[in-house]
Each structure stands twice: as C-alpha cells, then as structure tokens.
Design a protein around this nucleic acid. Structure first.
Length: 502
RNA sequence: GGCCCGCUAGCUCAAAUGGUAGAGCAGGGGACUCUUAAUCCCUUGGUUACAGGUUCGAGUCCUGUGCGGGUCACCA
C-alpha cells in the first residue's frame, strides 16, 4: 500500500492510540440504541416526565467542533445523525486528549451516556465513555452542511466527481445520503414487483445464466468456456425460452428476476449486464398482459413512492390505469409522416426515409428501418404508452395477427422517453416457430449478428404443446431510473460497468 | 467506432493574451467548557491524468495515449 500525507498522519494516530492502550479495531460494539431510537427514547421520557435514557450509540464521526475543554461532534448511523456533547471533566483528561489528538472525521466510534438537550436545544448524548470502533485511514470527503431556518439544506464541496463516485461507490454511499436512498428505492421497487406477482399466482423460478445456446432477444451474447466439459457457453441475453418451456411443463404463471448480459455498446440507458423481470401467463394474450402490466407497475409505483404520479426529468408522469394504447404504424406516421406499410421492402423504405432526411445504414433490413423510425419517436413518448403491432421480421417469437400475417401481436411499453418493456402473444405453433428460426438463420447469414440461433430443444418442447399465453419483459433498471428521477442507468446500478484503468 | 467537452492538493474549485500553480474545506501546531459551515492566530500539502513536441519559458499551444461525460451511429 502507498499512503499520502494525510493517510500517514492517520497511521501515526493509530500508533498513538495503541501506545495509549486503545485498540483502534476492537472486535465488538455495544450499541444499545440507534441514533433514531435514542432520540425517540429521549422525547418519550421528556413527554412523560421520566428521567432521560442512558444510551450507547455507534456510528461514523461526520463532524467535530472542539472548543477547548468541551467538544461537539455528530455521528451518523443508518437511522440518522446524533450530536455528541463531550466534556473533558466527564470523559476524563486522558480520554479527552486522545479524542482531540487521534479521532478524525470518518472514524467509527461508540459513545455512552445520558441523552440531554444542549443549551441550544439539540438532543445530544452527554458522553461519559467514548470508544474507537474502527479508525479510518483515508479521509472521507464528508461535506459540511448548513441548514437554514426554513430547513433548507446546503452542502458544501460534496463529493460529486461522477467517475470517482462510480469507481468508489462505497465512498459515494458513505457521504451522499441521497445515493443511499436511491438504492433503497430500487430495493423496495423490486420487493413490490415480487409481492404483486406472488399475490397473483406467479411462481418465481430460476433458469440458467450459463447457456449452451442463447436466445429470446435480438442481441449479441458474451461467450465463455467450460474447461472440464470442453464446451462453449453463452451468458444469457434473456430468460424467455427457458421460462416458456415451463408452461409446457404445466406451470401457468411463472416469473424470474435476474441478470441479462448483452455484448453491445454502453450508454446512459445501457449497461452490459442489467436486471430484467420476465413473466409468462397461460391462457391470456397481449391484451391481458397489458392489463396485468398496468396493475403491476401502478401498484409498485404507488407502494414505493406513495403516489401514482411521479416527477421525471421535469415531466409529470402518472401511472394510473388505463394507459394509452397506440399502434406502431400510427406512432410512426404521426412522428415521421411515413406510413411504413406503404413501403414494403427495405429499398423503398430506405429511399423514403432518406428523402425525409433520415440517416440510414445501407445494409439495414426492413425491420431495422422500421425500428429506426420508432427510435426517433421514442423520446417524445413520456406518459406510459403501449405501442403494439410490430412487423413479423423483427419479432421471431411472437404470434401473427390473424388478419395480417405481416404483423405480430406484440407491444412495447414506453415511459419517460424510454422503452421499458416488451411483450407478445407468444408463438406456440412449433412448425411456424421452426420457420421463424430458419428465417433468423438467413438473416444471420446476411450479416445480422443479432439474429437468433435455431433452438432445437425449444422446438421439441413446443411439439409437446404449449398453451396459448402472453409474456412480458421489464427493464428493472429503467423503472428504477424513473422512480429515482435519474437520467443515467449508472445512477441506479451500485457498480456500473466502467473501463478499467491502466 | 465518429465528433465535442473534461481531467489542477484528500474534497470542491480558481489561475486574461504562454511568464514564480492559488483559495475554501479537510489535515498539522496553538487559543477557547454549549458548538453546529463554530470562531481566531500560525501552517503542511502539487510529476497540473500520462507520453512526446513547439518555445528562452507550457496547467495554458500542438500530437498521441488513458479514463470519464455528452452526442451520433450501433444497440432495446
């Protein structure tokens, strides 16, 4: 380890503590109250006229104000903050000197004594015993704060360098309470999703992450290798094909929450690994899934934030059902002026798009061109909106519309200008599915690296019969972005992927 | 991957046109027995991301590299 000057000074303090017979990393803490519980116990005693409680509280030192033979400090634990009132004549000369000379902001400490109000009225622990729990070597960038009479909090020089916050998330969390809160919201959100699904007859299952064959989405996979088996394996890009096999096995409602891995570019809304919820429900279709999704997400938002209306990047978004239902054709026509069904092949559509100023790749398939048109409209769709009826070319696992075999029963959910989820009336005709895989194979040969490979075992499952059903996939990270009002997916991932240094 | 922007002390930021690299906080020394951005006096701290180049002289200009941010493309 290399140490800078500040760290060397603190290592000297370590020695000073040990020379005084104080172990700077003792094995145990003896907390009797969280800071919040200490305050509550004090307030209760004050109301009932009882003697104030004596407590032992533990936490990180976040401020120190020494005034000669008396000092004030604040400690913070997960429940909140509490002031320590330390008097030399209460803790003793030796302990007080050690506090002044060897304790720093950032250290974990423990303080025991009665809870009192100081002259300014702040509830504090009148410290009788002060212990070091864990000495910090590296100074934490804990900001100074000022709270005015109106309760408005100003933070000075808060740790805000984006790259360092992501690389040293532990420090970010330690000094930025709002970041801690964002990840609590994310956690509560996942709990709420799970609770709703559990309450509605869905069985939570786990399917393979290491797969001999990937599929279920249009994406390039990560590859890996099993040494003993001498076998190439892929990290899954979706759960879809494994979950639908379970419907063949007579489960009617299944879901999985877990990680997908896609080998593609990173951006403010893409991380190489991300969390997905997928569920499948037998004996329903696209339209049944829409109602389920409305209920599921409205319940989740309400339970996590206490309201169905949220603020997101300056927009007000309301999740109260029913949500808008539009067709892909109408959305694209409205946004771009192009009625894509009038241009049924790639060359014609590309020519029309270029005529209207779109920059299109000359090797893009017709389906991808349609997708590009949708992408252009995407940022304008703020309120929760189901966009349905997709071209069959880009939907190899969805069932065709009975009255229009060029399109499938598929919707994507958009909120806040982002795609949040994707759903189909699932294709359960094994012969048709085989043809779709063949077409994907031809697309792959033609240069589409995201085309899905033939999955013989999945077809074997379908041949046993799969009930009609609808399925849905939800980007958990993106929903978390909405609920925490963050524009970047990295702010809702504890450890977003970053290129390594050196 | 293309283009644009950024990288200066532990943290947050300054440094006209190229001319001795600074401040606040944190840290160190001192004063102070009710403070809360405590206050007051003194003070340490830098390979300016890295490597080259131009120049008498580069944090500043040029080239390259790394990392990050934004944007476009790719991509759900």
């Amino acid at each position: 380890m290399e140490f800078n000057e500040l760290e060397r000074q603190r290592i000297e303090k370590l020695k000073k503590l040990r020379e005084a017979g104080v172990e700077p990393y003792p094995p145990r803490a003896y907390r009797t109250h969280t800071t919040q519980a200490a305050v509550e116990a004090f307030v209760a005693a004050e109301h009932s006229g009882n003697v104030p409680p004596t407590v032992t509280v533990s936490g990180r030192l976040i401020s120190i104000r020494v005034m000669g033979k008396v000092a004030f400090a604040h400690i913070e634990d997960e429940s909140g903050k509490l002031q320590l009132f330390i008097r030399q004549d209460e803790v003793g000369d030796e302990s007080y000197t050690l506090f002044k000379k060897a304790f720093d902001i950032g250290d974990f400490v423990e303080a025991g004594g009665p809870v009192v109000r100081t002259r300014t009225g702040e509830i504090s622990v009148q410290v009788k015993v002060l212990r070091m729990l864990a000495k910090a070597i590296t100074p934490l960038p804990i900001p100074k704060e000022y709270e005015d009479a109106a309760g408005h909090l100003t933070r000075y020089s808060a740790f805000s360098d984006i790259e360092e916050r992501y690389r040293q998330r532990y420090a970010d969390l330690a000094v930025n309470p709002q970041v801690r809160e964002d990840f609590r919201i994310r956690s509560r959100m996942i709990s709420a999703l799970r609770a709703w699904l559990d309450d509605h007859g869905y069985l939570e299952v786990e399917t393979p992450i290491l797969q001999p064959l990937y599929g279920g989405a249009a994406a390039r996979p990560f590859t890996t290798y099993h040494n003993q088996l001498k076998q190439d394996l892929y990290l899954r890009i979706s759960f879809e094909l494994y979950l639908k096999r379970l419907l063949v096995g007579m489960y009617e409602r299944v879901y999985e929450i877990g990680r997908d891995f896609r080998n593609e570019g990173v951006s403010f809304k893409h991380n190489p690994e991300f969390t997905q919820l997928e569920f499948y429900c037998a004996y329903t279709d696209l339209f049944g899934i829409m109602e389920t999704v409305e209920q599921l997400i409205a319940y989740t938002v309400e339970r996590v934030l206490g309201t169905a209306t949220i603020a997101y990047q300056g927009h007000e978004i309301t999740f109260t059902p029913p949500w808008q239902r539009r067709t892909l054709r109408e959305v694209i026509l409205t946004h771009s002026g192009i009625d894509y069904v009038a241009f049924p092949d790639a060359d014609a559509l590309r020519a029309e798009m270029r005529r209207r100023g779109y920059d299109t790749a000359s090797n893009a398939t017709w389906g991808h061109l349609v997708d590009n048109l949708l992408s252009a409209a995407e940022p304008t769709i703020i309120q929760p909106t189901f966009i349905r009826e997709y071209p069959i070319d880009i939907s190899p696992l969805a069932k065709q519309k009975p009255d229009d075999p060029t399109h499938v029963e598929r919707f994507e959910l958009f909120v806040g200008g982002m795609e949040m989820g994707n759903a189909f009336t699932e294709l359960n005709d094994p012969l048709e599915q085989e043809q779709r895989f063949y077409q994907q194979g031809r697309d792959y040969e033609a240069g589409d690296e995201e085309a899905q490979p033939m999955d013989e075992d999945y077809l074997r499952a379908l041949k046993y019969g799969m009930p009609p059903n609808g399925g849905f996939g939800l980007g958990i990270d993106r929903l978390a972005m909405l609920l925490t009002d963050h524009r970047s997916i990295r702010d809702v991932l504890l450890y977003p992927h970053l290129r390594s240094r050196d």
